[in-house]
């Protein structure tokens, strides 16, 4: 099984970190992984995206042009990348910030109100993990436990934040179950 993902949003939404969390979790599961960021004169508010591959086989090309899944955190990202998803693929839409619907009928679309759920959990910064929770529940690409483990390594000195991040992953997951 090979998951080829594009995660996109505006700078500051944590799309690059979302991708890193997934590949770290994949590595814990002994999967083959790669993470390739868009790098450019990116800044807060500009656009950012990353190509992520999680696979049982060695990764061939690290750049994703035919995505099995798109996670779009804002509207320009959805508009830019929705055509990159293969027929039968999945599109995750952050419906808190994206007020349009996906017109394609050959992909499965999940509308996830990431920012709204994060606000309800009391920390708007966990919006990305709401999205990841939905993605994980729909694909089983990695486990929530391993995402939590990689998050725990990243947040060595911020262990108090792990709880709300877990809640975010679970809330996102509950939406697609």
């Amino acid at each position: 099984m090979t998951h080829e993902l594009i995660i996109a949003g505006f700078g500051g939404q944590g799309v690059l970190s979302m991708g890193q969390l997934l590949v770290r979790a994949g590595l814990i599961e002994n999967k083959e992984v790669s993470w390739l960021p868009s790098y450019g004169p990116e800044m807060r508010g500009g656009s950012a995206n990353c190509s992520v591959i999680i696979s049982d086989e060695p990764v061939v090309a690290p750049i994703v042009t035919d995505a099995s899944c798109l996670m779009a955190m804002n509207r320009p990202s959805l508009e830019k990348f929705v055509s990159s998803v293969v027929p039968g693929g999945m599109v995750f839409v952050n419906s808190s910030l994206i007020d349009i619907k996906v017109e394609r009928t050959d992909v499965t679309v999940y509308y996830v109100p990431c920012n709204q759920i994060a606000a309800e959990l009391g920390n708007t910064k966990v919006a990305g993990n709401v999205m990841l929770g939905a993605f994980i529940a729909a694909t089983g690409a990695v486990s929530v436990e391993n995402v939590m483990q990689s998050l725990s390594q990243t947040f060595k000195n911020k262990q108090h934040l792990l709880g709300v991040n877990r809640e975010a992953l679970e809330a996102g997951g509950a939406l697609v179950k």
């Binding site: 890193q20 590949v23 590595l27 083959e32 992984v33 790669s34 993470w35 390739l36 960021p37 790098y39 990764v59 690290p62 750049i63």
Partner: peptide, 10 residues
Amino acid sequence: DGMIGQMMEP
């Protein structure tokens, strides 16, 4: 190239 420099792999 820039990809080698920027990408993350195990």
